[in-house]
Design a protein around this nucleic acid. Structure first.
Lengths: 248, 248
DNA sequence: CGCGGTATTGATGTAATTCAATCTCAGTGG
DNA sequence: CCACTGAGATTGAATTACATCAATACCGCG
């Protein structure tokens, strides 16, 4: 992926880049994410209480029961948000990519689990620090609002996928989602290659299917020439438009 | 359909007496909804540009393609939010009850259709008027944020229902949702009675099922004594806890 | 009363699940 | 370096839940 960095240098000069904490300088969250709402001073203040943490794939970040102790920005990797029925049936209700924000203001009773789908890197922000900043900076709340609205849109799109699409369309929709969201190694001229950040089991839980069905649909799509699969996780989409066709 | 302009003149007169426009005095939105963030003065100002309109069941409020011209508070009835695939498959992605807010700030490309599920009464607010108020009043944006977050929670709950529940559990979940959300004629001591605001076709589109399956599951639940059905639309739930059991 | 849209019920078909048997591949230790 | 291992993935056969197709019943309304 080639981010086009038009005018970025100028922007940095303008805000006295030297004042921006080193860690934040190249962080996506500062450009496209939450921290874009902060001036260098606020950023420095916030950076004093943040911590970059790494988690391996599969690690539980937030258990469904408990109140999350902190917020976080996803810096790299994919986080899956999960819900579980009493009898153990699992559903992945959302995926968060960099530079998405993790955690929610105004805590509710609504328990969401968060788990590292791939290896992830998070920029952890203590509750108090963030909430203080939100109180002082309306622009920050505005960013959070926009993120919430975007997530709402995505959730509703997914409702359509879950409610009305066939297994093959679901799998195609998932691949399309990853191809367009996760940082693809290459995604130009309709072609995309990427490594699946989720296991078949996770994909199944995301799509409301079984592992076996996911597997079968993947091989079907491979057979149809829509995708190529290497070593189970590496996917090549020769033509995204063809894949999109299959999304229903 | 003619917008009904109830009591506009009266509302203005009354400002001097009570400070709160008559129409707003008993409006749920003022207590539990959006307008709770406004002081009497702001409320009066807003009331000058609002209109109460009625729509019959089935009326299209917002087409999926077009930008909505206004926001609205749901005062009575149920509005269904819909999305449609190119080939015509429909999915209801959300239901809005009084005093929910309809429409979204920061318009996106994400097209949602809105349709009156039952007869509805809306308090329509022009874009400009609301956006002006939001700019002036951070508390209002905060309310909108909270509503967005609540909708997000609901959407994710529904994702679990669509992805992981059986047809019977889906129908039970729907009934439970209506029993607890729509103003029930009575809902005390575990008992609830209500009139279904949706046709079988709408329920099917909400649950990702067919009309026939919805019908069959309803008769199953009736047979099991979980619900009673009168004249197709009138439902009695003798014991909500029993219904909840069936939700999976 | 009869009409039309909506809902139920039944018979049959099918997509996805379930159960079970391999296969793949990354990791480990001989 | 290779064989062994075990978790994850694929493939196949049998089953099932839901869809589809089709006929009938219900209810509101003129």
């Amino acid at each position: 992926m080639l981010p086009v960095r038009i005018g970025l240098v100028i922007a940095r000069k303008d805000i006295h880049n030297s004042n921006v904490p080193v860690l934040c300088q190249s962080c996506e969250a500062r450009h496209r994410g939450l921290c874009g709402a902060l001036d260098p001073e606020q950023l420095s203040e916030l950076a004093r209480s943040t911590r970059v943490v790494r988690h391996e794939a599969g690690e539980q970040l937030v258990r469904e029961a408990d109140e999350p102790g902190a917020y976080a920005n996803v810096m790299a990797g994919v986080v899956k948000l999960t819900k579980t029925l009493e009898d153990g049936r699992r559903q992945v209700v959302g995926l968060q990519f960099a530079p998405d924000f993790l955690g929610r203001l105004y805590g509710t009773e609504n328990h969401l689990g968060a788990e590292a789908a791939s290896d992830v890197e998070l920029c952890r922000v203590p509750r108090a620090a963030l909430e203080k900043l939100v109180g002082e900076n309306p622009a920050l709340e505005n960013r959070l609002m926009r993120q919430a609205l975007r997530e709402l849109d995505e959730a509703r799109d997914w409702i359509v996928t879950l409610g009305r699409k066939s297994a093959e369309e679901k799998v195609a929709s998932f691949l399309y989602l990853i191809a367009t969201h996760a940082n693809p190694r290459a995604a130009q001229g309709g072609r995309a290659e990427f490594r699946l950040p989720l296991s078949r089991a996770d994909i199944a839980d995301f799509l409301g299917l079984t592992i076996e069905t996911v597997s079968r649909q993947l091989t079907r799509l491979k057979g149809a020439g829509v995708i190529e699969i290497d070593k189970l996780r590496d996917i090549v989409v020769p033509d995204l438009a063809v894949l999109e066709e299959r999304c229903g």
